[in-house]
Design a protein around this nucleic acid. Structure first.
Length: 606
RNA sequence: GGGGAGUUAGUUCAGCUGGUUAGAACGCCGGCCUGUCACGCCGGAGGUCACGGGUUCAAGUCCCGUACUCCUCGCCA
């Protein structure tokens, strides 16, 4: 007798919900065969759906037909089962949520067989990621990935309800727009209808959301895909998702308050963790000085010390020529102390030099502090004067047994190398885990960065972020006279060393805007050419406004404890931007290219 | 674009200073088994050693190149 599954006999329960309370019920479950244990007589099947696992038992004296069919089942077959919930009695499996019961099957149907899978569908597998990505639909059957995507779905729901409650409107913006220079490299889309012209895929909805403010929408948000044609990383994909928002008539503090309420709610509802507000705030300069970057991980110390002034003060006599030279050429000197309480072996300390070189350093000077403050294991030990040595020890608050690491030269390189060393050492010493939060959530705002940075190649000042960031009012007089000292209302929200969002208060005053362009050497014509529509818009009563974009993928990665962004994106690209499942990016035929007026250049090299 | 690591069965790996027929576990196939839940027992199949070239009497092993994957610096306002 065949049971008309699906058409008439519907699923009554999922595979994660049956307990002792349900004993006696007749149920219908649909799912996949996770495991089978065939005793010849009783056949046990673990049936899986996205909610969980339920043991189904087939016995010859209950239904011979179902039992016979059950003997043919294989892993990952998709099946339907009808049966009665019975207690497992003495055979309860405490490891399973549904372990108190099993379903004694009276009917079984095979919806679809499965070929042997290329890798096991289990929680913990060690299969190489590219093999998993090739069969992503199977990888996504695995519970950790299902859980991550389910969490992500909840994050979307919480974000929407929070922001709607805060009075935000969810408005959409185009993906295909006009190329605007600066910032990330854009993906280009050729226009069939307009020969020789291209759309650029939006690297963010930045300009559009400002136009929403000009239009008077007041509070806008969007959970939106963004596209950037840059090299990929563990925490970077060419297409990624932002929680993008913009507000009118707000100060920086108002933006912070909304974002903090959103993040607090995400942490509360996803993890049951209360994160304290308001978040810490740290000026950009302080973050660079103490941590070497603008996204410090505050779960541990190992702070940097800037020794540039100490070196200068001792320049005349007894200084170390190498250090003094670096300073005189405009470089800086930084140190970091590894406390005696966390000793590194000589070999481990040697390894640090490799780490430093890997970050671009030419080397890594170090000094082990002795009982009398003297230095050993150090190339500097011979040439340094006792006075300078003492001064450095004091500046670093170094005690006997501590190991001091030094880096000197070009500021950006020194910061980068020391920042990488700081994180590396923290992991090595077990101050933070290799992956994950360790249950600690250090959130902060990094504020007041410089508006411009000096571009050595172009020998000029360029916008450190984007050209529409509002400078601090008191710095406006220096826009043209001393651009380097102008700070701005730009902010990043940082969590455990990850930048999870960034934004700014925008420049809505066309007169100041003109000065900013002038400081960057951008003439009126060039500005009109590049940003004409936005400049126009700002002339029609643009409100003061500002906003932020949060990296949804990074948030999801941190909230789920995933090792990689790829684990919270259903269909990610590999390191080189390839989707090994679909084969994208792929070739297209000549006819298609002709239609969009494109002729490929021959590939470079031999 | 620079640097580093890697690629051996469906999967994870072993394979020494180059040497006969490249192994293990899991998975797969066949058989047995009525309380398993990492079920168990018996038997079996399964390999272009990533690809191309070179050195050698002889290459999974040594050398060069290519592809792909991962990590990292640059890059990502």
């Amino acid at each position: 007798m065949s049971v008309p599954f699906v058409t008439e006999v519907k699923r009554t329960h999922n595979c994660g919900e049956l307990t002792a309370r349900d004993v006696g019920k007749t149920v219908v479950l649909f799912g996949w065969v996770q495991n089978r244990r065939d005793h010849g007589g009783a056949v046990f099947i673990d049936l899986r759906d996205r909610q969980g696992l339920t043991q189904v038992v087939f016995e010859p004296d209950i239904d011979p037909e179902a039992h016979a069919l059950a003997g043919t089942l294989r892993l990952e077959w998709c099946v339907g089962v009808q049966g009665k919930v019975v207690s497992r009695g003495a055979n309860v499996n405490p490891k399973m949520k549904t372990g108190e019961i099993e379903v004694r099957a009276t009917a079984l149907t095979v919806f679809n067989r499965s070929e042997p899978t290329p890798f096991p569908i289990e929680d913990r597998i060690e299969t190489a990621e590219d093999k998993r990505l090739t069969h992503r639909y199977l990888d996504l059957r695995r519970r950790p990935l299902q859980q991550s995507l389910i969490t992500r779905s909840r994050m979307n729901a919480i974000t929407r309800s929070t922001l709607v409650e805060e009075g935000f409107l969810e408005l959409e913006t185009p993906y295909m727009g006009k190329y605007t220079p600066g910032g990330a490299r854009n993906f280009l889309v050729p226009s069939r209808l307009n020969p020789g012209k291209f759309y650029a895929l939006a690297e963010s909805p930045q300009l559009y959301k400002q136009l929403f403010m000009v239009a008077g929408f007041d509070r806008y948000f969007q959970i939106v895909k963004c596209f950037r044609d840059e090299d990929l990383r563990l925490d970077r994909q060419p297409e990624f998702t932002q929680i993008d928002l913009e507000m009118s008539f707000v100060s920086q503090d108002d933006v912070f308050a909304v974002v903090e309420r959103l993040l607090v709610r995400l942490w509360r509802e996803i993890l049951g963790v209360e994160v304290p507000t308001p978040f810490r705030r740290m000026p950009f300069d302080e973050s660079m000085a103490r941590y070497g970057n603008d996204k410090p991980d505050l779960r541990f110390g190992l702070e940097h010390v800037i020794l540039t002034d100490v070196i200068t003060a001792h320049g005349g006599e007894g200084g170390v020529p190498m250090l003094l030279e670096a300073v005189q050429q405009g470089g800086i000197v930084k140190a970091m102390v590894i406390p005696a309480a966390h000793p590194l072996s000589r070999a481990e300390a040697d390894k640090l030099e490799e780490v430093a070189r890997g970050s671009g350093a030419r080397g890594l000077a170090r000094a082990k502090v002795g009982e009398g403050g003297e230095w050993t294991q150090s190339p500097l030990a011979k040439s340094i004067s006792p006075a300078l040595r003492t001064a450095i020890n004091e500046a670093c608050k170094a005690k006997p047994g501590d190991l001091i690491l030094f880096q000197f030269g070009k500021p950006s390189l020194v910061h980068t190398v020391m920042a990488n060393l700081r994180v590396h050492v923290a992991k090595k010493l077990g101050l933070i885990p290799e992956v994950g939060s360790g249950g600690r959530w250090e959130l902060l705002w990094v504020v007041d960065p410089p508006l411009f940075e000096y571009d050595e190649e172009r020998r000029g000042w360029v916008a450190a972020h984007h050209a529409f960031t509002r400078p601090h009012d008191e710095d406006v007089p220096y826009l043209l006279t001393d651009p380097g000292r102008v700070k701005c209302y730009r902010y990043d929200v940082v969590l455990n060393g990850f930048e999870i969002g960034g934004g700014s208060i925008r420049l809505h005053d066309p007169r100041v805007q003109a000065e900013v362009f002038a400081a960057m050497g951008i003439g009126e014509e060039e500005a009109r050419n590049k940003f004409g529509f936005l400049l126009d818009a700002l002339r029609y009563g643009a409100p003061p406004h500002g906003g932020i974009a949060l990296g949804m993928d990074r948030l999801a990665m941190l909230l789920t404890g995933a090792e990689s962004l790829r684990d919270v994106i259903p269909f990610p690209k590999s390191k080189s931007g390839i989707d090994s499942m679909t084969g994208a990016p792929g070739e297209v035929d000549e006819q298609q290219l002709r239609e969009v007026h494109i002729r490929p250049l021959p590939p470079p090299k031999s």
